[in-house]
Design a protein around this nucleic acid. Sequence first.
DNA 1: CTGTTAGCGCGTTCAA
DNA 2: TTGAACGCGCTAACAG
Lengths: 340, 340
Amino acid sequence: MTRTTIKDIANAAGVSVTTVSLVLNGKSNRISAKNRRLIKDIAQKMNYRPNKLAVGLIKKITNTIGLIIPDISNVFFSEITKGIEDFAHKKSYNLILCNSNDNHALEIESINMLIDQSIDGLIIIMSAESYGTKEQASLSLLKKASLPTVIIDCFNETDNFSTVSINNTKASYMAVEYLISLNHKRIACITGPLGPQTNTDRLNGYIKALQKHAIPYRKELIYEGNFRYQSGYNAISVLLPQRPTAILCLNDMMAYGAIKALKEQGINVPNDISVMGFDDIFFSQILEVPLSTISQPAYTMGKKAAELLLDDLTEHTPPKHIIFEPVIKIRQSTKKYQPK
Amino acid sequence: MTRTTIKDIANAAGVSVTTVSLVLNGKSNRISAKNRRLIKDIAQKMNYRPNKLAVGLIKKITNTIGLIIPDISNVFFSEITKGIEDFAHKKSYNLILCNSNDNHALEIESINMLIDQSIDGLIIIMSAESYGTKEQASLSLLKKASLPTVIIDCFNETDNFSTVSINNTKASYMAVEYLISLNHKRIACITGPLGPQTNTDRLNGYIKALQKHAIPYRKELIYEGNFRYQSGYNAISVLLPQRPTAILCLNDMMAYGAIKALKEQGINVPNDISVMGFDDIFFSQILEVPLSTISQPAYTMGKKAAELLLDDLTEHTPPKHIIFEPVIKIRQSTKKYQPK
DNA sequence: CTGTTAGCGCGTTCAA
DNA sequence: TTGAACGCGCTAACAG
């Protein structure tokens, strides 16, 4: 069964396609009332819906936005996605989803595929591989296509893109300062891949807080993970010999892995070692020992990104940089350090 | 900056657009070798990529599939989505994502939006509201549009759609039989919304297992939840007075809520009450008391759905019904019942 | 008030 | 071996 087109309607109504188009697009001030009625009735009856490909081809507007994220099965990203989708849908935009799997080549490929689809704009969370020249490669591709873009989780003032993120440096600074206030001095840190600035910012916040409190920075206390559960777990065997009294994990999933490994070693959290996370995903509240962590408003960040993008699309607002303030959630995985 | 079109290439090469089109579509057997070279070179140099709107308009193929799910922030669904996206991307298909928020009207709206976008096919997980006549409404809309569709989590032989699901009846049957083997007789059940067949199937499996073992079915032991953490939590206060010795939760999230409420009441899992889940999402392994549960291969189910759909699109395979076998994961939240 | 004409970017006859 | 012409479904000048 083939869809009804304006041509069908025009035939049925005995008018030209122009008239139909005019009526159906609300530009019918100059069309006779009876024709207006007639056409609308027929359109309704024949269940007419405009073909968006055809409209897009002409108007160069598709009401479609692209989303590239590293991994939709990661709850932090899926929460962001929800925020984006909800907002976009409310504004009658469709969302094309692409996973980059933290792979730069796939990211580039996705950007190209999305451009080919004539998306109106893009929201992207860069892959972990996309930093330095690779990040620039992605960005310049977007610039060449002059594609309205909002970047999440990557503050970037120099290029002409809107960004949405939290203040990462401040976030981990807050976390470390809190741990220091608990008398901790040997604070280990399990980081994400130390390429993207978001991640190095977090490490820098850690370092700054130590400096501020005149605690020496020890490289041996740093473990570079990859944001996955397993890497948090693995970190423990290399960190433990350094005898940390607290461990800051730069996302919650790694904190879960670390806690698991600690438990297997018979080490109690928080009595023996304090552990902090970063993100505050839902499950952190319901852990055996609810996780102290830095909260990022994932849903809101997604929503805000969508809002910025659609604003840009509809009224060409200049790039904005939204920085959310991190919020520290003190739960039960952290505790005052008491030398034994 | 505007994209380069075949016209641009034709001009640059001094040939007609037909020639360009022929070459770029691999139908260049009849084109002179030098022109072939020339055109390909120019296309490369000018960074030509076909406009998919235009191609779609002609070919009626967009290489785009739609996905409608209740909620992308639910890890069970996001895992399915990952499976779909990975497979689709590998086959050069794009994915348009829509959340129905378990709302039938939104589901219908999404279907229409997706059809307007000329998607080639659809994968859908019905909203909790879409059962009975509402389910039929969604299905008949798809049929009228003759849109190739795969339905996940809803076995449905009568309509002409492919389906992917697990054997839900058997799944909960297995769970209950396992609990019975542990000497439990007062087994409560926290269900999902008892509209969609998937959910009533699960309840039926529970009932069948009781019957098989001559254990009376008691309505007071059933609580109808909504698959959310909070409803599992809420269930406990109404179920507890019935003194169950085991509780089967028809998804993991509700099991988490139930366990939380139990803990707050000073009731130990599994020593006082056994709890089983359903889904086996990642977090179930890392709970304080790792959750015994029925495992659904979410990623694989998504992948399989995408595979069925693309098979249908490329070679018009008849509808298939894939039923995965549930696997019981015995962890530590269940234990032999010992009367005290 | 309404129809004719001309494309949007591309694939595909049909002639030449 | 190639090009002109047509059309996918629709919008937008421009006439009338």
